[in-house]
Simulated assay, not measured.
Amino acid sequence: MAPAVKVYGWAVVSPFVARAVLCLEEAGVEYELVPLSREAGDHRLPDFLARKNPFGQVPVLQEADDDLTLFESRAIARHVLRKHKPELLTGDGSPGSAAMVDVWLEVEAQQHHPLAAAIVMQCIVSPLTGRAVDQAAVDEDVRKLGKVFDVYEARLSASRYLAGDSVSLADLSHFPLMRYFMETEHAALVEERPCVRAWWEELRARPAARRVAELMPPDFGLGKKADQ
């Protein structure tokens, strides 16, 4: 019998698709990853826009049992954990603990993600797709991300994880993009900060993270194309 949960995304998963898949893996939910072709424009087909995501983006999660279709990776992540593993959203269950998870989820989305994503695009994707690297932009983003990681270092010197002493979605949400960022020459931003380094090593060693990493080749699956 087919899994009741389907995730639509690229065969080589993007950080956004990986966020949804990671939460399903952490929650032990059986799912099917339905691969789409970016090159064929599967995400722009009328049926996809009408039935899955009107903005033509991935991931999309469908639950047959509840006749539910969701898009936006952070919304999918929250839904999966709220339904199957709520402690990853609430910490110790107190309102304050849940609020701290929310705070660091916002930090990931607003402070960490824009800078780390820009660096990954410039340092990994641009060379593989034949585009010039804007080194001045990279240098500025590295400088800014270093300051963000200084805040993380201070936080992680006081608690094992970002939202407290137990892992939460606030930590897990960092994994997909960090998996690629750590393949760039700027991984030293993490390595030279001992608390951030220990946090990252523990995060990537989680069984669910290891399984998801197998779907995320360091070259985004673009290496073969770049060599052709």
Rank of each mutant, 00 (worst) to 15 (best):
A154M: 13
S157K: 13
V138A: 09
D134M: 06
A132E: 12
R143F: 14
L169K: 04
R155K: 14
Y161E: 04
D139P: 01
D171K: 01
A170Y: 01
H174S: 08
Y152M: 12
R160S: 15
V142S: 04
R155H: 11
G146V: 09
A132K: 11
Q135H: 00
E153C: 13
A136R: 03
Y161A: 02
A132D: 11
S159E: 00
D165N: 14
V148K: 02
F149C: 11
R143T: 10
D165C: 11
E153V: 11
V167I: 15
Y152L: 11
E153M: 12
D134Y: 03
D139E: 10
F149M: 13
A154D: 15
A137M: 07
K147W: 11
E140C: 10
V138I: 12
L169H: 02
A170E: 01
R160P: 10
R160F: 12
E153N: 10
A136M: 07
A136N: 02
H174C: 07
A170M: 05
A163I: 05
A154S: 14
D139N: 09
V148S: 03
G146K: 04
D165H: 10
A137V: 13
D150C: 13
L162A: 01
D171H: 05
R131I: 07
D150V: 14
V148N: 02
R160Q: 15
L145A: 07
A136S: 11
E153K: 04
A136I: 12
S166F: 09
Q135G: 00
V167R: 03
A154K: 14
E140H: 09
L162P: 00
F149I: 13
Q135W: 08
S159Q: 12
L156N: 00
L172A: 04
A170T: 08
R131Q: 13
D139I: 11
D134T: 04
V148G: 04
V148P: 00
S157V: 06
S157A: 15
S159L: 05
L145D: 01
R131E: 14
S166G: 10
E140Q: 06
V138D: 04
S173T: 09
E140M: 03
Y161W: 15
G164C: 08
K144I: 12
D165W: 06
V142D: 02
A158N: 00
A132H: 05
D139M: 08
S159G: 10
L162Y: 04
V148W: 02
D150G: 14
R143E: 13
D134P: 05
G164Y: 01
R155T: 13
A170V: 05
E153L: 12
R143Y: 12
S159W: 07
G146W: 07
L169E: 00
D150E: 14
E153Y: 01
Q135E: 11
D134N: 09
V133D: 01
R131T: 09
K144W: 02
A154F: 13
R155P: 06
A132M: 08
V142T: 06
A136K: 02
R160K: 15
V148I: 15
A136T: 14
S168L: 02
A137K: 06
L156M: 06
L145S: 04
L169V: 08
A158E: 00
H174V: 09
G164D: 07
S157R: 15
G146S: 11
S168E: 03
A154Q: 13
R155L: 11
Y161V: 12
R160T: 14
R143S: 12
D171V: 07
A137N: 03
V142H: 01
D139A: 10
Y161R: 07
R155C: 13
E140G: 07
A137F: 03
